[in-house]
Every structure is written in C-alpha cells, then in structure tokens.
Design a binder for these strands. Structure first.
Lengths: 204, 204
DNA sequence: CTTGGTAGGCGTACGCCGTACACCTACCAA
DNA sequence: TTGGTAGGTGTACGGCGTACGCCTACCAAG
C-alpha cells in the first residue's frame, strides 16, 4: 500500500564504491554517497541504520564478486587454496580503498563466510581437522588480510619503501639493503611468495 | 630566549595512550587528549602538526617499549624470531586500541624499523638474503599485523565467533564446526601456532 | 631591575561529519 | 475518490580537525 522504494541496496553499495574508488576511504561519507545518488543525505537512512551498515553493504557488494566455487579438484590442495586466495586478491586489488573496511566488517560478511567455507572444504579434503584446521584457516586469513593491507597502505607511501632504502645505513644496515632489494621485487611475486611459504608450512 | 615548552612529546603520547586505553580508538581526539593534559585543544598544535602526527607519537611511545635487542644467540633462529614476535605481541596486547594505528604509521616508526632490523639480523644469520629475505620479512610482518588485528577486532565481536558457530549448518557446515572448535582454542596458542606454520615454511 | 622579543598557550570560528526529528507527499488499496 | 503508509527532505545539534589572531609568560640583554 505505501510508497515503493526507489533505490536498491546494490545501488547504495555501488554509489559508495564509486566514491571510494574515485576519492578514497577518507572521502566516504553519508553526504558524499547521497550526492552520488542524487538524493538527500537523510534518504539513505531509509535503507541503512547507520554509516556502519552502509560500509558493510559495500564490503558485501565487492566480495560478492569473488567466485567462491570449489577450484578444479584435479589440482593439488595447495594450488587450490592459491586459486581461492588469488580470486580474493584480484577482486580487492581493483578496489584498494575497500581493504580496510573488509577488516572491520569481516565477521558480518556472508561473502567472506562463503569464501572461508570453500577454503575449509579444501583443507578438510587435505586431511585437516580440529585445532589444526582452525589454525590453518586463521593463519591464512591473517596472512592475506595483513599482506593486502601492507600492499595498499604501503602504496600510499610507495615513498615508504624508498624512505627505507634511504635510512642511515649505520643504524639500519640490513633494512637499507633489504629496502633496496624490495624495490626490485614485484608485489605480486612478493604476495604469492609469502603465501607459498605459509602453505609449505601447513603441509608439514 | 622565548618562553620554554611546558610539555614533552612523551607526555602527549602518554595522555593519548591513556585515552586510547580507557575509551578506545573512536574516542581519540585532539580535544580529548588536551583535556587529559589539562590544556586547551590548540595548545597541542605547538607540539604536533596535526592529528596524524599525534598518532605517530603514540605508536612510537608504545613500540619504544619493545625490547629490540638480539635474542640469545644460543637459540635456533626460528626460536629467536619467535622471541622477537612475542615481545611485540605482548606490548601491543597491553594496548589493543593502538594496533590499528601501528598499521597506518608503520613506515614512520623508528621503533618498528629497529625491530625489523633485528629480525633481519636473525634471518641473515640463518642464511637468508636477496629476494628470499625480503619475502621472509614481509610475510612475517603481514602475518603478525594481520593476526594481531584479527585478534583485537575480533575481540570487540567475541560475539563474532559465537555468531559463526551459530551459522545455518546447511549453508556453512564446516564454518559452523570450525567456529565451535575455535572457541576452544586459546588465542595465544592460535597466534603462535600460525607463526610456527609460517616459520616452518620459511625453513623449507 | 627594566625591558623587548620570542614563542607558548588560548578563544573563537569555520566547514566538515553522523544523525535525530518533524514534516510533506507520492503512492497504492480499498 | 480517498486514506493510510512509508519514502524523501530540511533543519538542527553536537562533535570533529584545525586556521587565525590575540594575550602573556618567559629569558636575555642592557
């Protein structure tokens, strides 16, 4: 009987994502998203309880694009995990400003739960269970989220790595040398190199 | 000749830390820190350029307490790394609200650079160099920062793990089961279990 | 002991933010 | 045609970071 809604949750999320992609995390505000949609600020509150809920919406919107289907069962289990991680990284790499939001909203994201479920399926198939499986999943999530954040917060200070290479070598000889090496390592190679280390450790 | 300063950087940092410990990250503001010190808000700007610099100050203040001395050389290298990581975790565990700040300010923290330098010393002694050393350091930092954040952001939703255990088992059979297991795993055991996995992977 | 210059500290104000609240009105069912 | 429901809006409030200009405590020089 009442007046019908004129916006969908996906439209809200897409507008918020547009703001994030264009102007970065600091520019995300209720007013900015409302302007993006051409409605008044307060109109948003007919769709979300508060800003937090809008953030969850955009996280869900982005992560929903991650394929959480089981990877090719012919692959060894470590490569299957790598496929799953790569899908996640590719998606978030396209929207770096969303990465910090995934940290704070991870508990409430169905998409992330589905992803974790698939990871657990692979781990279980590889013989993991009980505490060992808990630790495997948590360490994977810890590594992936930590590495993605370093990658994207580090990007805003890509100057950061440069600054490290320029440290006083008398105080930080190894950091200076390692910083110089680091500049020659492709970020993707670094990310998956670290993941490979973790997976090797998981395999005993 | 001019009027002398009446506050030290350490006093600023300590006041900010008091606010963080008592009221959490969201309560950290220039006004709150000024009130904590009994001075006007604008007085702080005689000591820091902006809020960002105050955050760096508190990160430095906290991390300065981490012992970055080389661990007992008699220990195997992996245990030496573990000692260094444990020192970092103990310090940040006492001030969980600071953890997110360490992510954003890590590039500018001398204390963190000193810690990294010591980690590199151990790695170098264990035969790491070049790209392999870069990846070892970055993956350690990624794991540690990711795991600490999960631990402390997860704490605010300790309800989060409970919610996971209560997921519809038909959609998330493994997550539900793993969530139940997870509740019985001590966080410290989980953290160092994951670290051990990573270190095992590093050792080939 | 006086005095002048330097820089510390403060009050005010501006433009953001999230959001509570009251109002108007477009819409659909009856 | 009309009434009720709920969508959309405008205003306002208290918080935030911080630019700016003033007052004044302090120390050095005389």
């Amino acid at each position: 009987m009442p007046r019908p809604r004129s916006l969908s949750h996906d439209q809200l999320a897409a507008a918020a994502l547009a703001v994030l992609d264009r102007d970065g995390l600091a520019a995300l505000s209720m007013r900015a998203v409302a302007k993006e949609l051409g409605v008044s600020t307060m109109a948003l509150y007919r769709y979300v309880r508060d800003r937090d809920e809008l953030e969850l919406l955009v996280v869900e919107f982005v992560l929903a694009a991650v394929d959480t289907g089981a990877p090719d069962a012919g692959l060894p289990w470590r490569e299957r995990i790598e496929v799953l991680v790569r899908r996640m990284r590719d998606t978030l790499g396209a929207h770096p400003a969303v990465v910090p939001l995934t940290m704070t909203h991870r508990h409430h994201s169905r998409a992330l739960l589905r992803w974790s479920e698939t990871v657990l399926m692979v781990l279980t198939g590889a013989g993991f269970d009980g505490e060992r499986r808990v630790i495997a999943l948590r360490s994977l999530i810890a590594y992936v989220s930590g590495a993605l954040q370093l990658e994207h917060l580090g990007a805003l200070s890509g100057a950061g790595t440069a600054a490290i290479s320029a440290l006083p070598p008398e105080d930080f000889p190894l950091m200076a040398a390692t910083g110089r090496s680091a500049r020659q390592v492709d970020p993707e190679r670094e990310f998956f190199g670290g993941l490979a280390v973790l997976l090797r450790g998981l395999a005993d």
